[in-house]
Design a protein around this nucleic acid. Structure first.
Lengths: 254, 254
DNA sequence: CGCAGTTAGTGTACCGGAGATACTATCCAT
DNA sequence: ATGGATAGTATCTCCGGTACACTAACTGCG
């Protein structure tokens, strides 16, 4: 599936070539009005407005004033489009300088978190493999650079990256969902009232799920309006992990 | 979307009622030949064989010898079916007893990991909200019970749960993908040969991505046949996090 | 200058999936 | 037995992704 477009680097598969923008910009034939970036840009705009499900080849093409099929000349498949969108929306990693690796990681995490906030649909993009896009690699590299002077060996650094980035993604996802749950759009408010928090509180019987019941009874999954504990929660979890990293570093440099 | 089926507990929405099997098993009218469990069972079988994408109402119905539409009487929507499948495949949490909370968490993690191994498609199920099914809640409860005597407050325990379960899911996903990458099915072997690891090694230039390039050059993303570092990697990351938890506990009980 | 070859965008048609609706079949309680 | 409730079916619509064959636009060569 997906056609093969010639690329400068002979060995790179077509989809990777597009992801890294290696196209040799054909000098013969009809010049292209469209290009990968315009397609991806339109798709990202759409996703920002309507979410990932709202992105359809039809609508993307419509937004650009072209036919659905013309997109296939530039992206190969819907799946690939999503990957391109994700890498584009992730953006290039900011250069960072921090005094300690710990500050650096905090900064890194906050930075991606901000990107996710700009493009909430990013968390819906299924993770289908290790990072492949230039931007994703850039973030990865930025993270690894933060850990440069820790004395950790490469494998360990990679492990830390996996853990931290997984945590960030997860935390954002979780946060987004809760926010969604308490969105009071007029009519659905009554629905939300009895919504999952409460419904589950009724289902989770203390004798069967003692510990979980405590959490639900305490309303740990309902956020009171006014306070915004999300940031603190985020930082808490991150610091938890970083304490672990610190222990690892201490162990190595002992 | 989704119809409302009456349930014993008046206040519980229909989908939750089905998830918790609260149906009042109608006493009038034609008796059902089908039920939620048969539908879910067939769907899970299908997913085990063909992956989550292979699950289609059509095929599930076919496997059961019914029409597609009959399923809607029992599951409300495809999305709900997937949720039901996930909770079913996750299975009930095993009772566990360990000497230390640390052993307990290891055990817990290994146990879910095993479940994921039985139903690899579980990682493809999009996480659309906090745990809602009885089995998911059961696992949650089991985890919290492990942390019972640590002195951590409920919020912190929940935070730890989020971090750990996120890690496990992530690690499994990652592992699965790498395994997929190196699946040599005859013809695609040549494809795989130059596949992503190598292609990326060519794209990730040391001057632009110094740290990442090191990783790719070192072949950190290619697994040699023979050794199986997956387990060690998994445990490594878990212990990293648990070191952090340990620090938190120490801090509290100080 | 104009034609050959190349590349971009279009039209159309297909496959397959989700789901709405209206139907028929079946069975219980009265 | 029969009427009301429930289970399963037959069809139909909508829509998304994609293959394929076409037309349109342009370039460089002869």
């Amino acid at each position: 599936m997906g056609h093969n477009k010639p690329s400068t680097a002979g060995e790179v598969p077509a989809d990777l070539a597009r992801l890294w923008r290696l196209s040799a910009s054909a000098r013969r034939g009809r010049p292209a009005e469209l290009d990968v970036d315009r397609v991806v840009g339109a798709a990202v705009d759409l996703a920002d407005r309507e979410g990932l499900d709202g992105v359809t080849l039809q609508k993307v093409a419509q937004a650009l004033g072209f036919t659905k099929m013309s997109l296939y000349r530039h992206v190969g498949s819907k799946e690939e489009l999503v990957e391109l969108m994700a890498d584009h929306a992730t953006g290039s990693a900011p250069g960072l300088d921090a005094d300690s690796w710990r500050d650096g990681v905090h900064w890194w995490a906050a930075a991606i978190r901000a990107r996710y906030a700009e493009h909430p649909w990013l968390v819906e993009v299924p993770v289908v493999g290790p990072p492949r896009g230039p931007n994703a690699i850039g973030w990865m590299d930025a993270f690894l650079r933060v850990l440069c002077d820790t004395g950790l060996d490469p494998g360990t650094k990679a492990g830390v990256l996996v853990v931290v980035s997984g945590y960030v993604r997860n935390a954002i996802q979780q946060g987004r969902q809760m926010a969604e749950g308490r969105r009071g759009t007029g009519l659905s408010q009554a629905d939300n009232e009895q919504n999952y928090g409460r419904a589950l509180a009724a289902l989770v019987h203390p004798e069967r799920f003692p510990e979980a019941a405590l959490l639900f009874k305490a309303g740990a999954f309902e956020t009171e309006p006014g306070e915004n504990p999300e940031d603190q929660d985020f930082v808490f979890g991150l610091d938890l992990i970083l304490d672990g990293v610190e222990a690892a570093i201490a162990r190595i440099n002992r």
